[in-house]
Amino acid sequence: MANAAHWVPLNVKHHGGLMWQRFTAYHFAQHITQASLAATELRHAAACFPIGFNQTTQGWQAVALLGLRDSQNLMVDSQGRWRAAYVPAVLRSHPFGLSADTPETLCIDQHSPFVVSRLDAEPFFNQHGELASFPQHVLAFLQQRETGCQRVAQQLEALANANLLTPWLPEGYQGSAPLYQIDEPAWKALSTEQMGLFWQLDAVPLVYAQLISQQQLGVLRSLFQRPTTPPLAESPSRPLSEWQEAFSNEERYQWPDPS
């Protein structure tokens, strides 16, 4: 899971001498099989990955299925290039994240190779011991994303309470994490009044994103059978120079793909 990182709250006392480096490839994500999704990501993700649901100790979440086995990410090729047209936000914001225990504090993945002590990287803090400008933007972006994830969790809770979620074992899936899907016959059997309640909750886009996304299983199976297939989407080699701009609006999820 993408949220299984070792998040540590940034603290100037402990991390003032460290810096962070922007990544140009996705090697760090090679063993991430599922990536959690916020509400505004669903329409983008559904065009690229199967979307499933699972239940954690923090509640329900929607996840992009990136592989068919544990610790497998078929969307990353051997050179670290991303094979799909969309990258989940939780991966694009690496090595930053939030902890459920301290959602108001920016965290870093302490095991990330992009947390460094070199002086040619970017600082976490400014000369006053406060978060530097870009990490401040990262924190705001991640808090927006967390709000979107909580919205999805509330919608899934309502769907589960209405018996509209059912266990899902996609063809070829061998992962250990149980998945759930929309019970399509039960969904279609809802009355107009019942359907209206889910429109009010804004859960209908989530339902159809999951149902439509299932056709992307064929892409995963194809990549699993032919792991050396060239990337599905490539771009000219360049650093992530537009990263900061992309943080400014939660709706702008189409960040440049490193290659």
Rank of each mutant, 00 (worst) to 15 (best):
W7C: 08
P9S: 09
N11M: 03
K13W: 00
H15G: 06
L18M: 13
W20I: 02
Q21C: 06
Q21E: 13
T24D: 14
A25P: 07
Y26S: 07
F28S: 06
Q30G: 03
H31S: 09
H31K: 12
L37A: 09
R43E: 08
R43A: 09
A45N: 07
A47H: 09
C48D: 09
N54P: 00
N54E: 11
N54I: 06
Q55N: 09
V63S: 07
A64G: 08
L65P: 02
L65R: 05
G67N: 08
L68G: 04
D70G: 02
S71L: 08
L74W: 05
M75K: 05
V76Y: 03
S78T: 12
G80Y: 01
R81W: 01
R81C: 03
R81S: 04
A84R: 12
Y86L: 12
S93I: 05
S93N: 13
F96L: 09
S99C: 03
D101W: 00
T102A: 14
E104M: 10
V116E: 11
R118D: 10
D120Q: 13
A121K: 07
A121W: 03
F125C: 05
N126P: 07
G129W: 03
A132I: 02
S133H: 12
Q136D: 07
V138S: 01
V138M: 02
A140P: 00
L142I: 07
L142R: 15
E146Q: 15
G148H: 04
G148W: 00
C149Q: 15
V152T: 12
Q154E: 13
L156N: 11
E157K: 15
E157N: 15
T166W: 10
L169I: 12
Q174I: 03
Q174R: 15
G175P: 04
S176E: 15
A177E: 15
Q181M: 10
W187I: 00
K188T: 05
L190N: 01
T192F: 01
E193W: 00
E193I: 00
Q194F: 01
M195P: 01
L197Q: 05
L197N: 03
Q200R: 15
L201F: 01
Q210P: 05
Q210N: 10
I212E: 08
Q214E: 13
Q214N: 10
Q215H: 12
R221Y: 01
R221P: 02
L223G: 05
Q225T: 14
P227Y: 10
T228K: 14
T229G: 07
P230E: 11
L240T: 12
E242C: 10
E245V: 09
E250K: 06
E251G: 08
R252K: 13
R252F: 06
Q254V: 11
D257W: 14
S259I: 09
S259R: 14
